[in-house]
Write a protein that binds this DNA or RNA. Structure first.
Lengths: 180, 180
DNA sequence: TTGGCGATCTGCATGACATGCAGATACGGT
DNA sequence: ACCGTATCTGCATGTCATGCAGATCGCCAA
């Protein structure tokens, strides 16, 4: 997304007001590569501006996303994550600690759709017209590879919706749900 | 996933019980390509077995996912979707009607990760070890391409978290939120 | 076939995330 | 400095998902 100054100008030119809350969020998001959730951003914002409302954070994030200054993603870790990187990139998601990192993928545009049920349409598959392609690589980040304890103690393990094509790191054995 | 009969055997051999509720769900899921949500499955199940609990549907879906007979995905459309296709495939998601279709992608394993911040690790990127790759193509299915009214009237348009790399189909103009 | 242990089901409560609403407030052009 | 109106805050509401406890029933054993 653009700089806080540019965003302020843009907001004003759209008839939107530039409030201290918005300016703070502009700053917190600018060059932010941590893919924060709305609540995470709210926590940080609250430190610098006690009393700011979570509602306002959601509102501003929604506005920025609508303006194309921000992208929102749902990696199945519970809350939506926001990304000020508006370039064509993809994501690495650590299934142990929930960390998200940007990654650039060669040949993502050249992926060839194959198999299925019908005849390929003009620009897509079986009449489906593709507008965008999202690629998510799931695995373990460097920290969680080193730290064997990361398996259980961190936030997002288990089988949170947001599947994958091979059993993640949970033992695919028997469902454990005994209550002795 | 395997056939209802095989699943029954598998469940029993794991010390789990084969109840009528589970058998019904085995049947409803077998060869099901509609990627139902838990609630959608519950609705169908309720017809054939009035009184079945939504809680039981969630429980059984979780068990099947844990056993690797099912995958769960979150496409950002609100509810998690379940997919009995356990092969290596990817998804087409219609941003207008929410439909999900399986698709096979050539070269998905050969994607090359580029750019970023550090040195590539042994098997991944900057020490990140990739365990699985999920690719989601967003766009419009054949039905929604034909039907121009699909834009507004269907469930999942707007900007539901579950982003994309180009503005979806909403006008990226100014955030509209006037309450006259 | 009957008996009994324990897994499972159902129904409700609880929890995380997200959005609608209304009154008080403050931005920003005049 | 003034005023119209976009915003902010706080609370209520809504959706999806899971924890819990008592009643029920599958399934192994006698």
């Amino acid at each position: 997304m653009r700089s806080p100054a540019e965003l302020s100008t843009e907001f004003r030119s759209l008839g939107l007001k530039v409030t201290p809350q918005r300016q703070l969020l502009f700053r917190l998001l600018h060059d932010n590569t941590s893919h924060p959730s709305a609540e995470a951003l709210f926590d940080i914002a609250s430190n610098q501006m006690p009393g700011i409302s979570l509602r306002t954070v959601y509102q501003t994030l929604t506005d920025l996303a609508l303006m194309g200054e921000l992208q929102s993603f749902d990696f199945g870790n519970g809350a939506a994550r926001f990304d000020p990187n508006t370039g064509a990139h993809h994501h690495l998601v650590c299934t142990a600690c929930g960390e998200v990192a940007d990654v650039y993928v060669d040949g993502a545009d050249r992926l060839h759709l194959a198999g299925g049920s019908g005849t390929d349409g003009p620009d897509g598959f079986d009449g489906f017209v593709v507008a965008s392609t999202d690629i998510v690589f799931r695995g373990r980040c460097a920290n969680c590879c080193d730290d064997p304890s990361a398996a259980a103690s961190r936030p997002a393990e288990a089988t949170p919706p947001g599947g994958s094509h091979s059993p993640q790191f949970t033992d695919p054995a028997l469902p454990t749900r005994r209550k002795p």
